[in-house]
Amino acid sequence: MLARHYRSFKHVLDEEGIIFSFSGYLSESILYSLGEALRQKMTLEETNVTTVKKVFSVFIEQSQNIIRYSADKVTGPDGANIELSSGMVTIGTQDGKFFIVCANMVRQEDVARLRGRLELLKGMGREQIKAYYKEQLREAPDENSRGATIGLIEIARRASEPIEFDFDPVDEHVSFFCLKVSI
């Protein structure tokens, strides 16, 4: 039963075209290892250099957003430099394109602002996104966002189709947030 159970679990992932999927507490060192595995996999398959860079970049920005902004975090005891953020990162291929999906809990009070930023980016064409990126590159850092704006623009810029996102309310405190990018 055990093998059958996990075989069917893996089969579901394979059917979805998933290369790998990470769910749990994400740290910068896990991000590094997953990123290396991803680059090696794509390089072995002789993926075009520019595509490898785009996929890697979206993976890093999405994972670092989870690390920074997940509403589900555990912190070490006072003074210990430990912080783990819970979330999910999934990478796969579908119809000849790569896709990267990230998901994490966000606080209800942050939903409107995040949704607004993503809708703005979704409505922009390629040249507008490029111009917006250049403008934000020259802006002083926004204290509240801790750099989220430029990270999201970078994600939208690398996408070959409009970004997709959704929020699923969990309770009065948090929503489950999901962002899908195709390259």
Partner: peptide, 12 residues
């Protein structure tokens, strides 16, 4: 070789 968006701001 590669840099993330916050490093891009620092490079600017």
């Amino acid at each position: 070789i590669y840099f993330n968006s916050s490093s891009a701001k620092a490079l600017m």
